[in-house]
Amino acid sequence: MKIGEVAVISQNGQQKDDFIRSICRKIDLKNERISFGKFDANDQLALHLYGLSIDDQDNDLSWDLISRKMLGYIVIFDWENQISLESIKPVVDNLSYNMRAPFIIIANIKEGKKPPIPSSFFKNKGIVLSTDFRFTFGQVNKPESARKSLRLLVDMLLERVNNF
């Protein structure tokens, strides 16, 4: 069984758990540091999602290990909450300068709300902010939306594979 791994980082624990649940249907394991979920693409290939919340970063988590093994990252913040945006900023700068894996920033839209811009601006490949990261709007508790965001990440990986 081949395994790909993705870290899901959010400002609060709820968003990363929602995202993992949307992709994997359930959270397989959760402790005070990490939430873990498994998505079986088929019997030969699985995707493991490790959820980390930014509040937990003070803990002595092996960030180096997490970073080295990850195919990519999903960073989630709450679009309606500026504090949430502020809290992910150091993380995205850190990911951008220290890691070579791509990442997607999801601005999470609450139930019943609409993204502030028409979907045509981000539906295909997100808003491209660099070769390594993209921005998109989504609802992480909706499986369809979460999968779409994860597909963006897979597409970025495919672009890398195609280019080299």
């Binding site: 500026q82 995205v92 700068d93 920033i105 808003i127 902010l129």
Partner: peptide
């Protein structure tokens, strides 16, 4: 002259609002 990712986010946040 590239902006930091966090600065880009800031710009989008303001722009879309």
């Amino acid at each position: 002259y590239a902006l930091r990712p966090s600065e880009k986010l800031d710009v989008l946040y303001r722009l879309f609002r």
